[in-house]
């Protein structure tokens, strides 16, 4: 965030008012991640030329869509200095509830709303226990993580459920805007909306304020509890939305569907430049983090590296991202 030092001491009254920081300096670390993503892709393309085909780009975007949306929700919580471990379970439970509702004759829309309700309810429970009761976010979301995960098994006795509704796939793969599949559209809408809220809406600045210095924010009259509550509801709802998108894509709901996503989402947010101690991070960064994780998985598969190495490679990517972040702020 350093711009050229324009001194503002009383002496230089003639100095012109400083310009707002350029987009390049605001999004410097995001640019670094974007470049890293491109480098990774090109690197994979060196071994497997098809990696750089439009078909593979489509694969990557489709595979990353749920993670992108989930990461955006987790980002908000992490900016407020919290953590949400329940998103993966909410993701799974959403799918189960939606598929179950459809199997019981609900329309696509009402079943989806029921699914979305899972995220809203669990997000609210997280928010209420954290802000009203004052329990630690890690503990609270660990509880809801476990409860939602087990509920995902309970609702159908552990069986996976197929979706037979003929048009439901349109939600993910249809095109409200011709030429732009919905899953990409949703990712774009959420990213732009969230980036706008975080930068240009007062309530968005509150997320940072609360994560940065909760006591100072409280004394400034910022509604700390409401802000934190909202963060968990947003996070839960986004996780649910991601769950719906996946069900719509594979037309199947599985109780373990989201199990690996929670850590990936947190990793995406961290790669995207957010600090787990709160107060920093951006929507664009989180999206790029999610894309990077997906590109790594894609690359490992394409090259044919044993997929057990994926975790190590992702871990290395997080380390590099965090180190870059650390040294660029020195």
């Amino acid at each position: 965030m350093t711009t050229k030092a324009t001194s503002m001491t009383s002496n230089d009254k003639t100095a012109p008012p400083p310009k707002s920081p350029s987009l390049l300096s605001v999004y410097r670390s995001e640019l670094a991640i974007a470049i890293a993503c491109v480098v990774l892709l090109v690197g994979v393309g060196f071994f497997v030329p098809a990696a750089l085909s439009s078909g593979n780009f489509a694969n990557i975007l489709q595979a990353s869509a749920p993670l992108v949306i989930m990461s955006l929700g987790v980002l908000i919580v992490i900016i407020t200095g919290g953590i949400d471990l329940s998103v993966g379970s909410i993701f799974s439970l959403t799918g189960m509830v939606t598929a179950l509702a459809m199997a019981n004759g609900f329309s696509d829309i009402s079943a989806s709303l029921a699914g979305l309700g899972v995220g809203i309810v669990f997000g609210s429970i997280n928010g209420a226990l954290i802000t009203l009761v004052g329990l630690a976010p890690f503990v609270v979301t660990l509880i809801t993580y476990a409860v939602a995960a087990s509920l995902a098994f309970i609702v159908t006795n552990g069986r996976s459920l197929g979706v037979n509704s003929p048009d439901y796939w349109l939600f993910n793969s249809g095109e409200f805007i011709p030429g732009l599949p919905n899953f990409i559209l949703f990712c774009l809408i959420f990213t732009v909306a969230l980036e706008f809220v975080l930068r240009k809406v007062t309530a968005g600045r509150w997320f940072y304020s609360v994560g940065s210095s909760p006591m100072a924010a409280y004394l400034l009259g910022i509604p700390v509890k409401r802000t934190r509550f909202a963060a968990y509801v947003i996070s839960g709802t986004m996780a649910s939305f991601a769950g719906l998108l996946t069900v719509s894509y594979i037309l199947n709901a599985e109780a373990t569907a989201g199990a690996s996503l929670m850590l990936q989402a947190i990793a995406a947010v961290v790669i995207g430049g957010a600090s787990l101690s709160g107060g920093s991070g951006s929507a664009i960064g989180a999206v790029l983090g999610a894309l990077m994780i997906t590109i790594i998985q894609n690359g490992v598969n394409l090259i044919g590296i044993n997929s057990f190495w994926q975790g190590s490679v992702t871990g290395l990517a997080i380390l590099v991202a965090v180190l870059i972040d650390r040294f660029s702020h020195r």
Partner: peptide, 26 residues
């Protein structure tokens, strides 16, 4: 020509792997 191992045993993962398999080996 290629074998990909699952980790999560989910359909979503298998879709991604199948896509990657077909991209690498058309």
């Amino acid at each position: 020509v290629q074998m990909l191992e699952t980790k999560g045993l989910t359909i979503n993962e298998a879709v991604t792997q199948a896509n990657d398999l077909l991209t690498a080996h058309p």
